[in-house]
């Protein structure tokens, strides 16, 4: 059997992925830029840029700054809004032979529901990912995600309006991520993804001003990976929902850490900027690893962490 191609198929609830490697929201646009250099049909799926009811211009620049082994961003959920997404982007996404998950965002609980409702009946979308974790917007986003009750209210509202599986993306900027995860589970979510970015800042010492116009931003990249991994480890043990691990994954060995900790799938974000082929290399690396270990189904690896 070792000569055969290992089976990388995983399931997030009712969603079947060809492999456990997804593009993280906000790092891959709607896929069209990367389509020039990456065969998108080989990915496990794409989580598209955070979508709001109406277009959002985003934050003033500077919006990004490089930091040790990572970067801070304060894009501010710049996006085209629901209507243009449905008309201009979804028809193209639908033609891709890959799973499309739409990350959604609202100013308030009702608005989250309105975006979910607006996506009702839209073909070509496999699931919604509810963003209660963006650190770079004044209202909504992380304001909900840091409070278990508010996270649950948003989740319930989206579930009420959506006709697709609902994944909730959690923020790491909390004291105990398990309590948020459990609240979201009680509210009925179908899955959880974590982590979004960690809040941080950087200062220009010559000018003595913040390097980001927004003052603070979200830290991503390999710098946050150990934090993300531990939170995934904790959440996997606190809930019975499928978990998607996100945070600083750069290569297949990083992805394996999350899978072994119990994540059913992973999302790759900042690494796409560094190397557009990262996700394909991770998929190939997972295949190689399985073959070398005599594993025929990647699900054998998921949650296989040995502990006393």
């Amino acid at each position: 059997m070792t000569g055969d191609r290992p089976d990388l198929t995983v399931n997030i609830g009712s969603i079947e992925l060809n492999n456990p490697v997804l593009a993280a929201s906000g790092t891959f646009g709607y896929g069209e830029q990367y389509a020039e250099v990456v065969d998108l049909s080989r990915l496990g799926g794409i989580v598209v840029k955070g979508l709001s009811l109406r277009p959002r211009p985003g934050n003033p620049p500077p919006r990004i700054v490089e930091t040790p082994c990572g970067m801070l961003n304060a894009i501010g959920l710049a996006n085209m809004g629901l209507e243009e997404f449905l008309n201009e982007k979804l028809p193209w996404l639908r033609k891709l032979d890959t799973v499309v998950i739409v990350n959604i965002y609202g100013h308030n609980v009702e608005e989250y529901g309105m975006v979910a409702e607006g996506l009702r009946g839209a073909e070509g979308i496999s699931a919604l990912e509810v963003n209660v974790s963006c650190p770079n917007v004044e209202q909504g986003g992380m304001a909900f995600g840091t409070d278990p009750d508010a996270s649950a209210r948003v989740t319930e509202q989206v579930l009420k309006k959506a006709d697709k599986p609902v994944i909730v993306k959690l923020t790491p900027n909390v004291t105990d991520i398990r309590s948020v995860a459990q609240a979201v589970e009680r509210a009925g979510a179908h899955g959880i993804s974590l982590i979004n970015t960690l809040s941080g800042m950087a200062i220009d010492v010559e000018k003595r001003v913040p390097r980001l116009a927004n003052v603070s931003g979200g830290l991503s990249g390999p710098a946050i990976r150990p934090v993300a991994l531990y939170m995934v480890y904790q959440v996997v043990r606190a809930v019975n929902l499928p978990v998607i691990g996100v945070g600083g994954i750069m290569n297949y060995r990083d992805a394996l850490e999350f899978l072994i900790a119990g994540a059913r799938a992973v999302q790759v974000g900042t690494a796409n900027f560094v190397n557009p082929s990262t996700m394909l290399e991770i998929i190939e690396g997972l295949e190689r690893f399985c073959r070398a270990q005599g594993i025929i189904d990647i699900n054998e690896i998921i949650g296989s962490l040995k502990e006393d």
Binding site: F28, R63, I64, I75, A78, N272
Partner: peptide
């Protein structure tokens, strides 16, 4: 960051 229009960092 990306250089190709995905991240919107260079606005």
């Amino acid at each position: 960051a990306c250089g190709i229009g995905a991240c919107q960092g260079c606005a």
